[in-house]
Design a protein around this nucleic acid. Sequence first.
DNA 1: GCGGAAATCAAACAAGCGTTTCAATCGATT
DNA 2: AATCGATTGAAACGCTTGTTTGATTTCCGC
Lengths: 227, 227
Amino acid sequence: MPDSAAESRDPRERILLAAGREFAERGYEPATVRDICTAAGVNVAAVNYYFGDKHRLYIESVKHAHEARLRQVPQPDWAPGTPAAQKLRDFVGSMLDRMLGGDQPPWQVRLMMRELLQPTEACRELVEDYIRPHFGILLGVLNELTGSALPASEVRRLGLSIIGQCFLYRAAGDVVAMLVPGGEIDAYHTPQAIADHVTRFTLAAIGVAEPFARPDVGTVSALESPR
Amino acid sequence: MPDSAAESRDPRERILLAAGREFAERGYEPATVRDICTAAGVNVAAVNYYFGDKHRLYIESVKHAHEARLRQVPQPDWAPGTPAAQKLRDFVGSMLDRMLGGDQPPWQVRLMMRELLQPTEACRELVEDYIRPHFGILLGVLNELTGSALPASEVRRLGLSIIGQCFLYRAAGDVVAMLVPGGEIDAYHTPQAIADHVTRFTLAAIGVAEPFARPDVGTVSALESPR
DNA sequence: GCGGAAATCAAACAAGCGTTTCAATCGATT
DNA sequence: AATCGATTGAAACGCTTGTTTGATTTCCGC
């Protein structure tokens, strides 16, 4: 695992790692090739020697982080007969693990997150190779959960609702922390706690688990016919 | 309404508007004071004359956009007796309207979004004055909906689930568009369509509306005892 | 109409940026 | 050991950045 501590011996690899971290932390334009080269322990000219220019280095570093992430987090592989609800919980849990990165330094995710929030050329490739397949798995689980009784567009919206709930904790995690009383924040930001909530919330909405509360039935009609 | 077309006569105001747009579009460091001054139709020295330096201009422009947004989008004011489900729909709808900005140019929201995603000094103020009160209203509605039967931490999670669902369409709207087949995208990104889905999803999860599907009851227990 | 503060302007400043240069060094091949 | 391409290094390139200067213009109370 040639990361933070024992860097790779290959200069090209060292530059890619340092660039990934720098781009993730500061963004494309604020990150300087001088800082990247200093962090990588190479001369300033090296980035132009190996990559041509800063822009090409950026593209390569995004791809690099993307591939590394794909390698270390393989698609989930469920035994046949696994309940769909369990699959959903697994999916949400592993997605949050990847996003909030309990194990590994989160700069790779942070770098990709920048692409999602403000897409450049590297984004489309990222979506096709990384996002869409994962999203497809989620849609499969949801189809299984709803008994294929919903049109594809509805299932897609369900999927986006799930992604959105998780996404907030990663993208706006600092603000979430400000909205939560200090004492509870530790219990809040764990991938497990969030995954439990999101799964329960979603299953309840689909009708596979008990709803959160059932005060008095009848308020429903007020929304069903708003006008 | 001194925006896009008829600019204000006050140079200070013109600079603030141009700076807001530029910072929103490009971010703090990539945005240049030269471009801002050109867009505002003033000399480069003006920003230092009126604001001291670039950083102070940034702070002021965030505050400015923030206050303008507060002025033009007042808190919702429901008649007593309004059903809680209707309040939720209103809340979600107006939040999405503000986020996706069907009416006004969305650069103000974009500017604030940057603060949420990568907080600087201006962020705390933004949260306290803008986010937390709105979030409080949402929590009130949710308390009403659940009949105050849930602990505060659970209600807060419900609120974050709602925010998250909407947030995704704003923050990662481009990626969402890539995941949706071309023909359906127009129907997808309307604030109304999203609000309808989010509201229905949430009400179903709480148990106030019908769930999306009810295939075969019983799969529940598989999740209730995962080990 | 005039004096003086406020505001604007073109020009220049030092510092930092990405990039290039070219000589010095390395490493394998003959 | 000599050679030659691949790699590294220190220094400088041209350009853009934020900021400052100092002269000029504008505006307003008298």
